[in-house]
Nucleic acid binder design. Structure first.
Length: 770
DNA sequence: TGATGCTAACTTTTT
DNA sequence: GTTAGCATCA
């Protein structure tokens, strides 16, 4: 047996050595899926398959690069460079770059991110004289996106009775027309949005038989990772591409399907066995990642979902530590608790910073952790979130680059035509816009045609002179010259404010990243494409996980649970486990939404290898005001004997009495939570009392910050009585309607003029005025 | 025409 | 608490 097959378990071996025919690998969390995928690719190559004939679709570009590297390592040669490997979007973008002219697009088409797309939509809504409060660009975008992912074009959209009914019901009868106009505008701009990369790929394969057969012949072997997160468009493309050889291998775990909001349907993996004849199914059920305790908890949680492929995830790992459940008073205390716990663990158990990750449901939660980690001098890295590439100054420079590559791109043309200010004002632009609409020409053609004054003429000449450079210079050289000659860098340099400095640095960082791109040897081996067009193509398709550029940095990782998919950490903090937050208020009210939230929680739990903390706060700031949430209902699904509850407060029932009519979120009075599920790993007699790691409580009862210099102070709960007039720093003057709770957690209902607000007296900054 | 300051809307999750 | 977009002023 080949050396690289040693050390695989029976099922892993079976999956890795399967050569011909459709294969479905149901891979539980931490079951060595990546290992199997890479081994299988190596094995294929080792058995005479040409790497050029293998297509592998992964979830992130980073995962793709890693896979390539590992295969190279196994084989001890550089054959793996010839693999066609990447995310759906980046692979299809690469193919479309070659084939787009067949569909009438320029091969240098621009890729619009969500913001660009919404901006186009907004322009259309305004042009159609519709109210953009009602026809919200974000709503329209998601609706269009759903249509595209379902392979429904505007004509079909308008004819679909159910869709029409939905739009009529939501009083948006013009949706179909907007969709139509949007598609036309993007086409005119020579631009594709994210969904177009899939849709146009599908269109290409279905309308140009020659192209279909070319790629069918090329991709003799197709591997798809995270198949549970594919949507209808992706499904159909794979079906087409794989039809000739049927050597399709899909890997997935229905329990980790967390992307239905963007059209993914778990049906794809559930149905796979019916899509092809003689499907080999392999289940990887041994978990190598987590302690027995963590795995038991995870199994118990997911057991509450009704719709799933039955499987039994087990492990021979040690029992490990109990899961620390911590309750804090506020979101800031939660941040402090986590930072303290990290410090404590580092002292006691010598963990490195990079062994920790903090996982939250929404990006907005990151700040409390950033602050507390910074205060404690613990290096951290924010993964994803508001991306670097969404910053205005970055988009401005990229806007220039996009226009230079593709002048049809009206969206970016309008962004930069008068930035930095060069005297091409709103009126001129509007007149040009009207002319473009009347003549059917593009905005650029109108600008170029002359007669708009010397300013416009200078601008078009400048862009054209940059365009000439495309042939001669690489991406970095052009970007540098653009920054210099447009005055963009000077403009930022002159701004000496703190923000101005940050913007200047961001642009420098962008330039650095372009330089890095031009200097990194191309992995594809097939084209040494260091042009600007090639750079722009990939930059828009970087995934959140990819933005974690120096992945080796010794830093704590902060990210959403979604971004953590596929990753693992020795120590994991799952934070903000509260009703309305996790599960999200948007997804709580129907079975499907709730089950997806539960799968998300399952994903979060299964990221942890050794230690897991779960935290929630009594109250947190949201939209600038303090709100209270009950503890998450999911906490009830954790077996109590797996929990270390020494940080949940002295016998106080979490949420008790705060939110009458709230959920059942009470982990202290629900024996039902202990219910074990049949077919799981079963109860494990805990031999020894868990050596609970005990980071010191962070004084969650002591409000921090004084705030009394201005007359407002916290912790004056005992002085406040019903009927008093008080002033709140935010809400102004109000009247105390009622009080509830004990002295340590007293709540007041206060009417600030717009109905009663519930305020926690211990933490609110209040002043008594009468 | 451009800059500054205020209001409103905002938060799921992402390619 | 932040940010984008709008209104107002210089």
């Amino acid at each position: 047996m080949e050396k690289y097959l040693e050390g695989l378990n029976a099922e892993q071996l079976r999956a890795s050595t399967h050569l011909e025919g459709p294969l479905m690998i149901v891979a539980g969390a931490g079951s060595g899926k990546t290992k199997v995928l890479t081994t299988r690719v190596a094995h294929l190559i080792n058995n005479g398959v040409d790497a050029f004939n293998i297509l592998a679709l992964t979830f992130t570009n980073k995962a793709a690069a890693e896979m390539k590297e590992r295969v190279e390592h196994i084989l001890g040669n550089s054959e793996a460079r010839n693999l066609y490997i990447g995310t759906f979007h980046s692979i299809f973008a690469r193919i479309l770059r070659k084939e787009a002219p067949l569909l009438g697009y320029p091969s240098n088409f621009t890729i619009y991110d969500t913001d660009d797309a919404k901006s186009v939509i907004k322009g259309i809504v305004n042009a159609m004289q519709l109210d953009d409060k009602h026809y919200k660009p974000s709503y329209i975008y998601s609706r269009i996106s759903a249509a595209k992912n379902g392979l429904i074009n505007p004509a079909e959209y308008k004819l679909d009775r159910q869709i029409q009914q939905e739009d009529a019901q939501s009083k948006r009868p013009m949706m179909g027309d907007i969709y139509d106009a949007y598609v036309r505008q993007c086409f005119k701009n020579g631009a594709m949005d994210f969904d177009d990369l899939l849709l146009k790929m599908y269109l290409l394969l279905t309308t140009v038989p020659e192209v279909l057969s070319r790629y069918q012949r090329r991709f003799k072997y197709i591997l798809i990772d995270v198949y549970q997160d594919t949507n209808t468009a992706q499904y159909n493309i794979i079906k087409l591409l794989g039809a000739m050889h049927e050597n399709i291998c899909v890997v997935g775990d229905d329990a980790q399907s967390i992307y239905s909001f963007r059209g993914a349907t778990v049906q794809n993996i559930l149905q796979f066995k019916d899509d092809y004849d003689d499907v080999t199914i392999v289940k990887l059920e041994q978990n190598y990642r987590s302690t027995l305790t963590i795995l038991n908890v995870a199994n118990n949680i997911i057991g509450n979902n009704k719709n799933q492929i039955p499987k039994e995830l087990w492990t021979s790992n040690m029992e490990g530590e109990k899961i620390v459940l911590a309750r804090t008073a506020t979101d800031n205390d939660e941040g402090r608790f986590v930072a303290d716990a990290i410090k404590e663990q580092q002292m006691r158990n010598h963990y490195a910073n990079r062994d920790f990750s903090v996982l939250y449901r929404t990006n907005a939660q990151s700040r409390a952790f950033e602050e507390s980690l910074r205060r404690m001098n613990i290096p951290y890295k924010l993964v994803g979130g508001t991306s670097f590439y969404q910053r205005k100054e970055v988009k401005d420079l990229l806007g220039y680059l996009r226009v230079i590559v593709n002048q049809q791109d009206e969206e970016n043309l309008k962004r930069i035509i008068n930035y930095p200010a060069r005297g091409i004002g709103k009126t001129t632009q509007e007149r040009m816009q009207i002319r473009a609409a009347e003549s059917g020409n593009t905005f650029w053609q109108v600008a170029e045609s002359g007669g708009w004054g010397s300013k416009v003429e200078e601008f078009t000449i400048m862009i054209k002179s940059f365009k000439i450079l495309l042939e001669q210079k690489n991406a970095y050289d052009i970007a540098f010259l653009v920054g210099k000659h447009t005055g963009l860098i000077q403009e930022l340099y002159n701004d000496k404010t703190v923000e101005g400095l940050a913007r200047y640095e961001n642009v420098q960082e962008l330039l650095n990243s372009i330089k890095e791109f031009t200097e990194t040897p191309d992995e594809e081996g097939e084209l040494q494409d260091k042009t600007l067009g090639s750079y722009l193509q990939q930059i828009t398709l970087l995934t959140d996980a990819d933005t974690d550029a120096n992945g080796d940095a010794d830093a704590v990782r902060l990210m959403t649970v979604h971004a953590a998919k596929g990753l693992e950490f020795k120590c994991v903090f799952i934070v903000g486990m509260e009703e309305n937050l996790f599960p999200s208020a948007m997804a709580m009210y129907d079975r499907e939404g709730l089950e997806e939230e539960r799968r998300l929680f399952y994903v979060a739990v299964t990221r942890a290898k050794e230690r897991l903390w779960i935290t929630f706060a009594n109250s947190r700031y949201r939209f600038g005001s303090l709100i209270q949430n009950d503890p998450s209902r999911f906490l009830d699904e954790i077996p109590v004997d797996k929990l270390d509850r020494s940080h949940t407060g002295p016998g106080v029932r979490p949420g008790g009495g705060f939110n009458p009519g709230g959920s059942q979120g009470d982990i202290f009075s629900k024996p039902g939570a202990l219910k074990k599920l049949p077919g799981k790993t079963g109860p494990t007699p805990s031999g020894r009392p868990a050596q609970a790691p005990t980071p010191r409580p962070t004084g969650s009862n002591t409000p921090s910050g004084s705030g009394s210099s201005d007359g407002f102070s916290m912790g004056i709960a005992s002085e406040i009585a019903v009927g008093m007039k008080v002033e709140h720093q935010k809400f102004g003057i109000g009247k105390v309607l009622s009080l509830e709770g004990g002295i340590s957690n007293r709540m007041a209902s206060i009417d600030f003029g717009e109905g009663a607000k519930k305020i926690m007296l211990n933490y609110a900054k209040l002043r008594i005025v009468g």
